[in-house]
Amino acid sequence: MRDRETQERYGPDVSRRSFLKGSGVAVAATAIATAAEEALAQDKKAASAASSSKAQDVELTINGEVHKLKLEPRVTLLDAIRNDCHLTGCKEVCTTKNCGACTVMIDGKAVYACTRLAIAEQGKKITTVEALSAGGKVDPVIPCFIKHDATQCGYCTPGFVVATRAFLNEHPKATLEEIQKGLGGNLCRCGTYDGVAKCALELAKGGA
């Protein structure tokens, strides 16, 4: 099982310290394994309950509204939101967890919708950019983006707005450095970062 090359590299353990020895592992492992065995006995039946690969009922709760869809398991959350729920604020750009144009919130956390399967996100509270200006209530992030002209072609912008909202929710008093770290998951090709940073900083100072 052990790779020969790895073993050869490793050599003898010469330390007296616990972080090198790993004492007591076996005990805990057994404890967990026992729990697992118990669970196994209870759930043997459920194990065979895998669903089919055919299109099936999928219910997504987006912006408080339930969307009843028929989707194959392989449909991404992004495709479902854009193509089936017709909420096109989030965009498809990279499909490789890099650009952030598809950012939505799931249970309040910013997430790349391209990295999720729609079928796996049932029962979650999904929030898209559309919710940030729904029902006559406009999230302060939106006018602040406009004020600092944090948009040019605008294609990356909704994803950036959602990321900014999610970020500020968790870091309401963020510094510029924190903003630059937190919002590094969104790409803009036109180069609107300066406006985004100013916007986030202003909202953080105002305690948004």
């Binding site: 669970a39 209870q42 043997k44 194990a47 065979s48 895998a50 089919s52 690969s53 399967l117 796996a120």
Partner: peptide, 21 residues
């Protein structure tokens, strides 16, 4: 993306069972 079945187990044992198939 090729099509696949999807399963969402609640326990480790269930997951192991589903992964064996």
């Amino acid at each position: 993306m090729k099509n696949f079945e999807f399963a969402s187990p609640q326990t480790e044992a269930e997951a192991v069972g589903l992964l064996q198939d």
